[in-house]
Nucleic acid binder design. Structure first.
Ligand SMILES: [Zn+2]
Ligand SMILES: [Zn+2]
Ligand SMILES: [Zn+2]
Ligand SMILES: [Zn+2]
Lengths: 142, 142
DNA sequence: CTTGACCCCGGAGCGGCTCCAGGGTTTCCA
DNA sequence: TGGAAACCCTGGAGCCGCTCCGGGGTCAAG
């Protein structure tokens, strides 16, 4: 399998595959006489694993550590839990802030109905007022 | 007001303030004889405006355009609406994917209860299985 | 013999900061 | 008066996870 085949099989961009190799996530592939990379089934599985973890938004460093566990199956799995927990915590924190953000944006959007000049625009007014600190907790000074 | 005072007053890092200046978001401050930047009330307000928009997760480019409206209050406000709408759409898209992500992570986390070796760990098993494509839509090949 | 598809490499660019080295200035206290 | 601490300056590199670029080599079909 050449890199283009692997890319097609997994839906991962060629450049990204090379990047994962440089980053030490994907083991070095074999080389044809002309220098082209050649991959085997294990590379495909490894790459799918990486993409699955990336789809869970894990940083590459976490994936690296998970791959260590795959390579050393006798190790205790406590760190795996902690890793997932940390990831979940990140996601939930981001969810919370995005939810707050969404309602702020919805409220903001409601300030402008019809087309008019910027100086009469409720959105701009609200943004300026909030920046002055009136009823604005989001960019707190603490 | 020197840069440190502005930083303290707004809770924004000094380096970030200088970065905003370089990025053309904050107007060039005055300078003391020794080259130190000096800021006035308008800078403080401007910076607060920027931070408020950043708290709404707007990209700097959008903020630049909002600032253009502040500077040209006679312009039509239609673009302001579109800007907020686009931002809201981004946030909602991210919310949706994060919600899916959260439930996946929760399900994943449930696969491991007690401490054991990595090869028996349900989390690792699930990750590997999902990477193989069994019941996994997240890293689709299309 | 050329066209096009594929592959190689090293390096730059993205956003939004953050940090660093290497310097100058000011302020405070002994 | 001296010296340390706290502040300020600049330009440039580093972070993440790619993505794109230039400049080249390789190989099969028409
Ligand atoms: Zn997947
Ligand atoms: Zn309006
Ligand atoms: Zn705010
Ligand atoms: Zn386990």
């Amino acid at each position: 399998m050449r890199i283009g085949d692997l890319a097609k099989a997994t839906g991962v961009d060629i450049e990204t595959i090379r990047y994962y190799e440089k980053a030490g996530l994907l083991p070095e592939p074999g080389r044809e006489a002309n220098g082209y990379r050649t991959y085997r089934q294990e590379h495909l599985e490894r790459l799918a694993f990486i993409r699955h973890c990336r789809a869970l938004d894990m940083p590459l460093e976490s994936i690296r550590r998970l791959l260590d566990f795959v390579a050393h199956p006798e190790a205790e799995c406590g760190d795996i839990n902690r890793l997932i927990d940390a990831q979940l915590a990140r996601v939930q924190a981001r969810l919370n802030s995005l939810r707050a953000l969404e309602s702020q944006l919805v409220a903001l959007r409601a300030q402008c109905g019809e087309n008019h000049s910027a100086q009469e625009c409720g959105i701009l007014h609200e943004l300026v007022a909030a920046a002055h600190g009136e009823a604005c907790a989001c960019h707190s000074t603490d």
